Simulated scan of single mutants.
Amino acid sequence: MDVKLDDTDRHLLSLLQANAREPVANLARKLKIARTTVAARIARLEREGVVAGYGVRLGQPLEQAAVRAWCGLSANAKQATAVVQALERLPEVEELCAVSGAFDYLALLRCATPEQLDRLLDQLGQIEGIHQTHTSLILSRKIDRRSTVPGPG
């Protein structure tokens, strides 16, 4: 499907990404268009699959308390499906991407404590088909456009 987005659609999407619960009236005011137009655009974006759903973004207290890490995983090609299914069952695996380069997958891990991360890494090493991991602990975020908090106005 070829989806055409204009500048207003892109601005609307950025506002929704920042706060998907923003009232339509506020969105209309920020976009300087009618409320009914905003509602119609949102409905069209949902219908066309541009907006696939709405979710929860964790707040700063929980974010800061978490121990997060990126983990590069090398997997046997014949066992890739089973590896992904095994990783899918681990709630600490927040995101999994197939990547090019030194690893086959890059997993974003979230644990409550360093000890939990240590146990999780041991678990990952036991998954049949994973033959190498490389983990980098996230110390701080320098840029994160996915979790911008809307400012006043």
Score class of each variant (00 low, 15 high):
Lys4Tyr: 14
Ala20Pro: 10
Val83His: 00
Gln60Ser: 14
Val84Asp: 02
Glu92Thr: 07
Ala86Cys: 07
Asp122Lys: 13
Ile42Lys: 03
Asn26Ala: 10
Gly153Ile: 04
Gly153Tyr: 04
Asp144Tyr: 03
His131Phe: 15
Pro150Tyr: 00
Gly129Leu: 09
Ile138Ser: 04
Ile42Thr: 02
Leu62Phe: 12
Arg47His: 12
Ala102Pro: 08
His11Asp: 10
Ala80Trp: 10
Ala82His: 05
Ala43Asn: 09
Ser100Thr: 13
Pro114Met: 06
Ala112Ile: 11
Ala107Tyr: 00
Gln116Thr: 06
Gly153Met: 05
Ile130Thr: 04
Asp6Gln: 09
Glu128Ala: 14
Asn26Arg: 11
Arg35His: 07
Arg89His: 10
Val149Ile: 11
Leu5Phe: 07
Gly129Glu: 02
Thr8Met: 06
His11Met: 14
Ala75Glu: 02
Arg35Gln: 06
Ala52Cys: 14
Ser14Ile: 13
Ala25Pro: 13
Gln60Lys: 13
Ser14Cys: 12
Ala65Val: 12
Ala40Phe: 11
Leu137Glu: 06
Arg110Leu: 02
Leu16Met: 08
Gly153Ser: 05
Arg110Glu: 03
Gln116Arg: 09
Lys32Ile: 08
Thr81Trp: 14
Ala66Lys: 03
Leu12Met: 03
Arg141Phe: 09
Arg146Glu: 07
Lys4Leu: 14
Ala98Val: 14
Leu121Ser: 03
Leu87Asp: 00
Leu12His: 02
Gln60Val: 15
Gly153Ala: 11
Asp104Cys: 05
Arg110Asn: 05
Asp9Pro: 06
Thr133Glu: 01
Gly55Thr: 10
Leu58Ile: 15
Glu48Trp: 03
Arg10Thr: 12
Leu137Asn: 04
Leu139Thr: 08
Ala75Ser: 11
Arg145Ala: 07
Arg10Gln: 12
Arg41Glu: 00
Gly125His: 06
Leu13Cys: 03
Ala107Cys: 04
Pro61Tyr: 08
Leu121Phe: 07
Leu120Ser: 00
Val83Cys: 00
Asn19Ala: 06
Arg119Ser: 08
Ala77Phe: 15
Arg146Gly: 12
Leu73Gly: 02
Asn26Phe: 09
